[in-house]
Lab assay of single mutants.
Amino acid sequence: MIVFVRFNSSHGFPVEVDSDTSIFQLKEVVAKRQGVPADQLRVIFAGKELRNDWTVQNCDLDQQSIVHIVQRPWRKGQEMNATGGDDPRNAAGGCEREPQSLTRVDLSSSVLPGDSVGLAVILHTDSRKDSPPAGSPAGRSIYNSFYVYCKGPCQRVQPGKLRVQCSTCRQATLTLTQGPSCWDDVLIPNRMSGECQSPHCPGTSAEFFFKCGAHPTSDKETSVALHLIATNSRNITCITCTDVRSPVLVFQCNSRHVICLDCFHLYCVTRLNDRQFVHDPQLGYSLPCVAGCPNSLIKELHHFRILGEEQYNRYQQYGAEECVLQMGGVLCPRPGCGAGLLPEPDQRKVTCEGGNGLGCGFAFCRECKEAYHEGECSAVFEASGTTTQAYRVDERAAEQARWEAASKETIKKTTKPCPRCHVPVEKNGGCMHMKCPQPQCRLEWCWNCGCEWNRVCMGDHWFDV
């Protein structure tokens, strides 16, 4: 396979590697080409510095992935760790964990309700045991953590790749202090920090972006993250068709209702045909949960890209028209025109101005929308079919299609509260000796007794199943 190397943020060049090629071997190839010592090179990928003893497969490097290699003399205490030698983080029983690669970060837990604080980093599902597709590297999971809308060759929703760059020099040479644990960490600028490894760059702020994971991409090709779309790892039924499908869209209502993408497309087109989208002054033209839940309008309007190009163009047109109407304007009634106009409040005669090729020149009556006339309008008909009709959803289907309910059931079956801080902690095999993952707590306690870890627990039921 081919990976592209950008040395000291210059133009990239291809390097041929195998899945079992080590990072140090990659350094040696680059060092020979650039005429520099291999031990002064640092390989940066997806916000993480890659260790010498890791392989291309370990690092989730795919065909035509772009890695950054910078030349920086080692500072005291760094060289041993980078070589894969006596790194205290690798000691058996050590409590410190390697910062998780962005290629394996899962933010789907952050669609849980606000009262489930902490689960994004504490609760991990076991539903990723799908067998890898044919042709994928051994052991590589097909679980997708992110979804994007690819405006490039795909023109559809695709699995996405999370990447990070330095907000100062805009190069992907920043190593994160810690990985993101929720969508806010990724979507809110300057929320996460790190250290830029580019020479002479003092940058410390992280800037995240997404790429389409279905095809090789260049540095400049980015895609918009659709953070309401998630892999259906909890096997929730769709609120409309009641099938279990994946991926799904999880509405931001209190129940976190789930809808499959085909039904979401149908829901949007139906509402669009009836012009029953909601115009929100802050958000724009949007839709609420299909069950009509309060405070559930979709905030990231790129989710409506699921409509496809033709329907999305209609959505944008109707949204612009609705904006004009909300501002007190009118639409030209001549067939084939429909231009938005903003006449004076007491102006009865409205002319669709033909300047700049935008208007048709038609003069019409503001009251009856017919060709302009003197005197009273002959008839004014009330528009028919403008009443909002509820999208029919079966109550039982709505009850079963809740992301929140599956989460709470998982928590109930696989977790116990920490005796000190009461945060839910998952036990997935292993011994009875637990350690609270909350940095402010870190209590060592017994899963069996529910009390602080002691010699009695150690001698009596340390390794009970």
Rank of each mutant, 00 (worst) to 15 (best):
Y143D: 05
Q389R: 12
G459K: 15
C449R: 01
K129S: 13
A91K: 09
T410Q: 09
S223V: 09
A206N: 00
F381N: 06
C95S: 13
V380D: 07
V148Y: 00
C446I: 01
H124A: 14
A172M: 11
R455T: 15
D60T: 05
Y312K: 01
W462I: 06
S205F: 13
K435R: 06
V105C: 15
D130G: 10
V290R: 04
G429S: 15
S145W: 02
F381C: 08
Q197D: 13
P437Q: 09
T204P: 03
G328Y: 03
Q347E: 12
I229H: 01
I2R: 13
K151W: 15
S296Y: 06
G94P: 07
M432T: 06
D60Y: 04
G47K: 00
H124C: 08
N81V: 14
I239E: 00
E426L: 10
C154L: 01
G459D: 15
S101I: 08
P288G: 14
R402S: 12
P113L: 08
M327W: 06
N356C: 08
C154N: 00
M327P: 03
G179F: 05
C377T: 02
R89S: 13
L325I: 10
N313Y: 15
Q171E: 13
P419K: 04
S246W: 02
R305P: 02
G336F: 10
Q317A: 14
K427M: 08
T231I: 07
L123R: 14
V278S: 09
T386F: 12
P159D: 03
H422Y: 10
C59S: 07
R348I: 06
G118M: 04
K416Y: 07
P333W: 02
G430V: 04
C421P: 00
G338C: 07
E98P: 11
T410D: 14
G12E: 08
F251W: 07
A206D: 00
G77T: 11
N58G: 12
A82M: 13
L112F: 11
E300S: 11
C418M: 00
L61S: 01
W183G: 01
K211Y: 15
D130H: 09
H68Y: 03
P14T: 03
N232F: 00
T204D: 08
E444H: 15
E404R: 08
Q389H: 14
S65D: 08
G308P: 12
G12M: 05
G319R: 08
D62T: 14
L325A: 04
P419A: 04
